[in-house]
Design a protein around this nucleic acid. Structure first.
Lengths: 158, 158
DNA sequence: CTTTTATTGCAAATGATTTGCATTATCAAC
DNA sequence: GTTGATAATGCAAATCATTTGCAATAAAAG
């Protein structure tokens, strides 16, 4: 059921005549274990600890390939203007999942939203469109940050 | 009630010691009359027809200022990777509005979504977060494109 | 162990957006 | 109306995330 990223990638590679390189394997492992929604740069830094000859463009090429295979999703959050963050989305399997980002601590929370699914169905039948994917991002202040007085240090961390 | 962009901008400028330059005036007018969700480049091209000495960076600076003043919203849609599209959002005043983008003709449709508002309220009370803004983009095929056989030309147009 | 060619590392290119700076022009005060 | 302070512009160069060309490397099929 819950195939690992690695296994899924291997299946696709086999069907395409692709190759499982050490770099690809490493990137997949790092991606799998990395919490949150890392940027390419963050993935690169994490993976470099295990292979310091790894190149940033290899990371980009693999991330692009993974998004094309739909094993990974790339998303742009408002604050970090044009930088993409990558999401392995293996946690919540069938149903679409969405994101809340705290503007203070920059943490990203995932959730599913039955109301949104309902809306999508309604919208499809009301307008005749076909919905293929959905991206909902809520921005605000998380419960922790609301409780605490503003801690400017925390803002830089992630 | 429905103040024009120009009027709102003027009020803010006055309170900040800012100045209403001809360029700013032009950009605001173009923004007001331009349908859809233009890119900075598109706004620049449209405005250049009325003032050919207008500079692209002036357009960028004004758009950035307008988004900071929250008179305009910048959004990144999936297909045009890292390019922002700008939205004056004067049409649907009080309630948040969201977007559907057709992957075939690239048209953008706006809508409001009571179900999503409901979800936001539920999510806030369930988690204790404060939601300040929301960005929902649906991707798919619009009704027209579903009806027609694929017309590859159309894809390039916008 | 060869051979084929997908993938890599590296450096240079890209493309949207931003920025430094000298110049211009708005607008408040005369 | 003229003047003066300075906000905003035009221009060119810089940024920054991401992509790409190409020679070198290394999977994996035979």
């Amino acid at each position: 059921m819950s195939n690992t990223l690695m296994e899924q990638a291997e299946t696709i590679l086999r069907s395409q005549g692709g190759r499982m390189t050490n770099q690809r394997k490493l990137i997949l492992e790092v991606l799998q274990t990395m919490p949150g929604h890392p940027t390419a740069e963050e993935i690169y830094r994490a993976a470099s600890q295990y292979d310091d000859s790894l190149n940033l463009s290899t990371v980009y090429r693999n991330l692009r390939w993974l998004t094309e295979q739909e094993l990974v999703t790339a998303r742009v959050f408002d604050e970090d203007r044009r930088q993409e963050r990558f999401d392995t989305s293996l946690d919540l399997p069938q149903v679409d999942h969405y994101h809340f980002r705290c503007q203070q601590c920059c943490q990203i929370f995932e959730f599913s939203a039955p109301e949104v699914e309902k809306f999508k169905a309604n919208y499809e039948s009301a307008t005749g469109v076909l919905i293929q994917s959905a991206n909902l991002i809520l921005y605000g202040i998380c419960a922790e940050c609301r409780a605490q007085p503003v801690d400017e240090n925390q803002k830089e961390e992630q």
